[in-house]
Nucleic acid binder design. Structure first.
Lengths: 192, 192
DNA sequence: ATAGCCATGTAACCAGTTACATGATTGA
DNA sequence: TCAATCATGTAACTGGTTACATGGCTAT
């Protein structure tokens, strides 16, 4: 299990509430690890029972109170031990590839539309990632030094998404050129 | 759930025993979908109960008997319906990135060694993928036509692994150059 | 009014992993 | 003799998703 350790390394960087952690998973690191708030709260509970984190209740007037979690000395030790261990690359489970593999079962139009949709989705995240990269590269040296490791993970996201879009386009062209679609292909018409 | 559909599209291509399917997941399509034999057998049982697949018992003399599964008409219909549906890109959960993010907790040497290990692992699969690509490209036209969709998924694997190795090298250099390791860095010494 | 953000949780369910179990044949 | 390949499964557990639940504040 790594959610446990993902939370520990996040807390090591900065103390957060469960809500904050869920937010951090949604954005930035969502690019390399994901967890819903439900998962986060339960994991925090377990980590607290194991004395790897502790928290202080922060009472707020205009908003709900929150528990701000910090990593403990034991937690830091556990995190360091885990980081030093080797891991296997993640196993891939990409439903789009299964669909492509079974594309003969359906109309080409459906597949092409789906590929286009994925291209659009990935280009949106790419724009976001690139904006973040620019922000990093134009930051002062101290910030750049501090944010080096998060930046390296961002690079991974950029390369991943770029590679994915390239492959999607290649695949789209391969299918569109070789097998004529039975229904109109979205995004191909150019009136005029 | 997609294991169900992954099995259906595999069976649509060619009837297989549970064992065969598990093998097919390990190699070829293992590049885009993974499942253990335990999972496969249980899923086949469920698919059979739902009448989406059926099987014939093949008795063998020198080996254990086996059940050869085929997709049914209902199964084909279900698979086609699923293939036509849109899916979200898979969520990423890459423990190596969590480790990199938390790399400050440990010695640089440990991280560099881990990056090197991943480079080696990925280069091994890359060689395998490239060999398969070459086989595809030098096959006769009929085979190339028949294997087009599997080939497109193979392309995905090739691009993915190449991108990953590039990123690993970039990251390795970034870390090795900028922060001097506290212990000897593997693969950096050049006696002479 | 209505949606969205802040903030915390429980419960039921589904998917995936690990461990356990059996047994013949073939090759190092 | 030991490991690998072929072939099938069950059981327990862990991790992750979906649904449900609450409630005030802020901006449109």
């Amino acid at each position: 299990m790594s959610l446990k350790h993902a939370i520990l390394v996040l807390l090591e960087r900065s103390p957060s509430s469960g809500y904050d952690l869920a937010q951090r998973f949604k954005s930035g690191i969502g690019n390399f690890w994901n967890a819903s708030h439900q998962q986060v709260y339960q994991e925090l509970k377990r980590l607290h029972e194991a004395h790897l984190v502790d928290y202080q209740l922060e009472t707020q007037t205009e908003r709900p109170d929150k528990k701000v979690y910090r990593i403990t000395r034991a937690g830091k030790k556990a995190a360091a031990a885990w980081v030093a261990e080797p891991v296997d690359p993640p196993v891939v489970r990409d439903a789009l590839l299964v669909k492509l593999y079974g594309a003969e079962l359906v109309d080409d139009g459906a597949i092409l539309a789906e590929l286009d949709r994925h291209i659009a989705v990935h280009e949106t995240s790419l724009a976001e990632y690139e904006a973040r990269e620019e922000a990093y590269l134009s930051a002062d040296e101290a910030t750049r030094r501090r944010m080096k490791l998060p930046y390296l993970t961002l690079r991974r996201g950029i390369r991943y998404v770029r590679g994915t879009v390239e492959w999607l386009r290649e695949t789209r062209d391969f299918i569109a050129a070789d097998r004529l679609p039975k229904s109109p292909v979205p995004g191909k018409s150019r009136r005029g």
